[in-house]
Design a protein around this nucleic acid. Sequence first.
DNA 1: ACTTATTGTAATTTATATATTACATAATTG
DNA 2: CAATTATGTAATATATAAATTACAATAAGT
Lengths: 63, 63
Amino acid sequence: MRNRMKVARVEKSLTQAQLGKKVSVTRQTISLIEKGEYNPTLKLCISIAKALDRTLDDLFWEE
Amino acid sequence: MRNRMKVARVEKSLTQAQLGKKVSVTRQTISLIEKGEYNPTLKLCISIAKALDRTLDDLFWEE
DNA sequence: ACTTATTGTAATTTATATATTACATAATTG
DNA sequence: CAATTATGTAATATATAAATTACAATAAGT
């Protein structure tokens, strides 16, 4: 989960703060989700996926 | 989200209580997620998807 | 119709996701 | 190098996910 979200964000040339603003959370929240230290809610995951033009599976599904 | 999770659960012939037990939450939590009245965490969504042999996108992604 | 299993749902409590404030340390860029 | 910009992270506070208890209602079986 961690790396793919970060890669997708960087591919869109967004900083953590910019992505946070797009999905209405703080940059700290984005940082911790990327590092795998937060367990985000489904709604937030969906918002992030849409903001990065990816699906849930693209960013958060493994195996 | 709501209908697809319910359909997948019924296809596996599981009651809400049985699915809840598999993923370590109460049947009420399953019920409310199916009805779209809960905003579950990513980890729970992943557990549910695995328990139902589906992916996140199968159950929770729209559009 | 009666009984039991399954689901809906409300009220309250508990656990945890997220915000806030703050400071530190990379990383960029001039 | 100096100065921003971006990121990591800790402590505390707040919002909300999920548990618990309880009761109602519907479905399904006998």
